[in-house]
Design a protein around this nucleic acid. Structure first.
Lengths: 336, 336
DNA sequence: ATCCATCTTGTAACCGGTTACAAGAAACCG
DNA sequence: CGGTTTCTTGTAACCGGTTACAAGATGGAT
């Protein structure tokens, strides 16, 4: 039927069909007011007839704006990953933006490379890299591309950052344990080299010392097995403790299960606490006392702030989010 | 320093700086072999000096290829969402592609609109829409954009689809329950209008009838509370059952907890089974018998097949994945 | 030295939109 | 009715890459 080969119709095809100019077609599709109704209808009819769909890529190029936010995440575990994305997605959709995913399970070299070829694909980046120095990361990135750093170490590139105050959260938890009578509180740390893990350990140590107690830290990996192993180690080395504070919930659950297998009463003999408040924490028995981080909110906020930066607004350089204490039965019998 | 205003350097800037043509710069960056080493170095030096980063959007436009796969998902719950994305991401990264996220928590009208303005943004689409007729969905989409349908109802647009055989999975579970001596097996259904829910219910009914038993279906919503409510309903109406088969794990867990609160022995008095094998299923006590769907694999496969379609290869029209039975203590005492 | 094949390089058109600018039409005014 | 303002419309340049094609350079064979 058509003179040309087929393919998708372009704006010029529509213009020809409607007997109008490309400028007018563009105006119609962008709902600019200054188009005579008669012309508008002709254009719309032509577009319908050719089943014209605007080519977003071309639009992006000429407008130098894609409406896409690049999200660079490390290899996250289940809930955290889905929750943060859910939050980001909700906020992005509300602003008519899309999310471009790019995991970063690679070394720094590849990471920087990956960031670089986001140019022209996205309007800005949300980068979460808990084990890479952000200065190094951003140094290779043009200063012109907006980016916000999530839960990373501090950076000195003047990039805005958004962080959970992990140290404060850990202090709150230690305070809770001390307040409920615990003294020999051991901490199971998260993965080595992970910033959040380090911050939580730091908060723990600070609060212990402030309470006149001596810190004791066991290594861990953020996974369930770490919790298991930590309990085993405590047992074989005959270390007496009355509370275990794990750097995340999965490890706390591992510890909980290990203690249950050993017939140790929780919280009677030993209190157990975690960090993150994953859904599982509520469902397991006894319910796990933990620090709740509203992860979806964190994601939404990240998109929110990045959007502001993209739109040229001024945003504060650093924003901290405080986790809140959720007391359940793993530390006290009287909890809900 | 630079004559022009600043902004990012373009390929023409590099060409000028290197005293070469844009074609040569392009060749260098695309690693085409026919460039004299001396020129190549000059170009690379110039690019380094100007901190040139190729503009992916421009490249996409002129090559008519973005390297991006659009992913349209409904509002999924935790594990499912993260697992399927993890699988997709892994496979996409391996093929040097990116994922563009676009949730679809909207009506059909918006949905089609959302799909449409993916044109020029993505090379293809993975669409998961368990509650929208795909024929309607695809009818408004140009036939030229590759798309594959995930876990939807059958479509007659000749689009390739990838589905979990939910009915077969449900039959397998009923067979297991019957084989372990259960007779009064009740099914808690998933959300109304959801295709997967309907398929699971269908498989359940078929298998029950095949076993000479009468099906009995309670309504549900895929959430924990549905499980709770179902158990309550059974109790208040004094219905005697010896097995509960929920259309997903969350409802099964809700039922499990409700039964525990009532002091009913599982599996002694009532067996409980779910569907999906979420991580929680293993951790809860008793361990939940369920049908395991390798969700990450499903995601990876979807990307895999879509890539094939994009690359013009021929792919089979429909592919079914079979879930596998995981027996735990919620249906039999002798399990691992 | 001549001719031909091969390799390197540059020019310019193209991908499909947006938009500055100018020109023509319409409306308003005295 | 002429002049000015306002509104509508079209032309063409531009966004930043890729690539067909042609021209120039190089090298080998005779």
């Amino acid at each position: 039927m058509n003179g040309k080969a087929m393919g998708q119709a372009t704006i010029r095809d529509v213009a020809r069909e409607a007997g109008a100019s490309v400028a007018s077609v563009s105006r119609v599709f962008n709902r600019l007011p200054n188009v005579r109704p008669e012309l508008k209808e002709r254009v719309e009819a032509a577009a319908r007839k050719l089943n014209y769909i605007p080519h977003a890529g071309a639009r992006n190029l000429s407008m130098a704006r894609t409406g896409v936010i690049g999200v660079v995440l490390p290899d996250l575990h289940g809930e955290f990953f889905s929750e943060i994305l859910r939050g980001m997605e909700r906020e992005a959709a509300m602003r008519g933006r899309h999310l471009l995913l790019s995991n970063m399970h690679m070394g720094l070299g590849d990471g920087v490379e990956a960031l670089r070829n986001m140019r022209g694909r996205v309007d800005g980046l949300i980068v979460m890299a808990p084990h890479i120095a952000p200065d190094l990361l951003f140094a290779h990135l043009p200063a012109s591309i907006p980016a916000i750093l999530l839960n990373g170490p501090e950076n000195r590139q003047g990039r805005p950052e958004l962080r959970i105050d992990n140290a404060a959260g850990a202090r709150t938890m230690v305070d809770h344990l001390v307040a409920t009578g615990r003294r020999a509180i051991v901490h199971i740390a998260g993965s080595q080299g992970n910033i959040e893990a380090a911050e939580r350990a730091r908060g723990y140590s600070e609060a212990m010392i402030a309470a006149g107690l001596s810190p004791m830290i066991l290594p861990g990996n953020f996974d369930e097995e770490s919790g298991h192993l930590a309990v085993q180690r405590l047992q074989t080395q005959h270390v007496e403790v009355d509370a275990i504070f794990a750097a995340n919930d999965m490890m706390a659950i591992g510890a909980l299960v290990a203690l249950r297998d050993l017939g140790v009463d929780v919280p009677g003999q030993i209190a157990v606490a975690g960090f993150d408040n994953i859904p599982l924490a509520r469902l397991i028995s006894p319910g796990l006392t933990t620090m709740a981080v509203d992860i979806a909110d964190l994601g939404a906020r990240a998109v929110n702030r990045l959007s502001a930066v993209i739109d040229g607004e001024n945003v504060p350089q650093t924003e901290l989010r405080y986790p809140s204490l959720i007391v359940r039965n793993s530390t006290t019998h009287t909890a809900a």
